[in-house]
Design a protein around this nucleic acid. Sequence first.
RNA 1: GCGCAGUUGGUGAAGUGGUUAACACGGUGGAUUGUGGUUCCAUUAUUCAUGGGUUCGAUUCCCAUACCGCGCCCCA
Length: 433
Amino acid sequence: MIQKPKGTYDVYQEKGRKILYLENIIASLMEYYNIDYVRTPIFEASELFHRGVGETTDIVSKETYDFLDRGNRNMTLRPENTAGVVRSYIENKMYGEANQPIKTWYYGPMYRYERPQSGRFREFYQFGVEIFGSNDPALDAEIISIPVNFYKLLGLKGIKVNINSLGDSESRENYRQALLNYFKPHLNCLCEDCQRRYEKNPLRILDCKFDANLDIIKKAPRILDYLNETSKNHFLNVQKYLKAMNIDFEINPNIVRGLDYYTHTVFEVEADIKGFGSQNVLCGGGRYNNLVENIGGPSTPGVGFALGLERLLSALEFENIKLIEEKSLDLYVIPMSENEKEYASSITNGLRMSGFKIDIDYMNRNIKSNFKQSERLNAKFIAIIGEEEINNNYLTIKNNKTKQEYKVKIEEIIDFLDEHLDHDDDCNCGHHE
RNA sequence: GCGCAGUUGGUGAAGUGGUUAACACGGUGGAUUGUGGUUCCAUUAUUCAUGGGUUCGAUUCCCAUACCGCGCCCCA
């Protein structure tokens, strides 16, 4: 048996409908924000991610799907989409457009070679927004508002917004030095992972679950004390706008993010749901004012976020949020025998083109099984087509709920269905029978 | 990359070193030759992830591989 690759999954039936529904919500939400859709290739030159995401990040150093194409070019399946969107922004010279800032959203699969576990796949889908050309702190707040509003729209309750600031390059570098100096004499008190972090990304030490209770960690210098005046003001303003939008947040100085490109605001939205597993960060993002320049464009500020669809779906499931209604049909067509199938096909096709949801038996079931099938399909009406119906130009249509039967003339079927389907079955207003 | 636990039909699953692999749901056919959702009957895994090994014999024991699940690292 050929199996699907590790860490991937198939989408079908119920799950497929759910995902299509979410995709529609995303697209219409983005219209409200006046954000344009952007789509970039699933693979890019490997160098893009090395320069964009950062050579030293785990994502690039050990999690990418790399391959050599037939022209011996180094290619990588995108592990995230920010670098790709920035490349597209530069390559298409969007920085020159009149319409600034440039607001873009994307949705699609990302690839990371990791051990799968709860809420983590090798192929996973992200919805994200990237906005270029403005350093306005109000925009940082707008970015944070998108996932918050999206989750709210879906009815997801247990979410928590954590924000922090890494400051501009100057502040960030000062702080890094301070941390290195601070931890140097205590290195052997830290766990193995943290000793490695000391070399690679000292900010991460603060985030360690293992060492979290050590005094050295608790008393470590705090980034917020190292922000210069500009960075401090930016961060205060972001908070001001968040409050104006009524978005609850917490300042968490330990959020540093694993991607190298962040400056100023960084944030995470986590599922604050008891028992929800360890992969509880549903969304992450922040400002990246140096990224466009690093990738080779003009110095341009940017800010964005990405959220994972799989984690969102499992959070919704965990909170018992249904999203979609049960599938249903307007009419299920039952030909009595082989002789009526041609006629039944013609009726079915006509009604579909008139906007009804119709299906018909293709298993040549006996009538009893077909009635069962109509229930499985949640059909509101059943049409039985036999010799008598064909000869006399009518259909026997049965309301699957009330069991009432009607003989409906062929030319009146559309009117009949219109009339009976408009009024929902559980409407008790008494205006119609 | 590391650690732990799993893998039996369409589904949920029980089970044992030895030729019938329980039970339930679902599916199909019938009792009812054009009206079901109840009931009853029949049928539904030559096979227990894959490949090796031990054995007279393995789905059951051992090893390897694959995949799934959970955790670490990291991230969405």
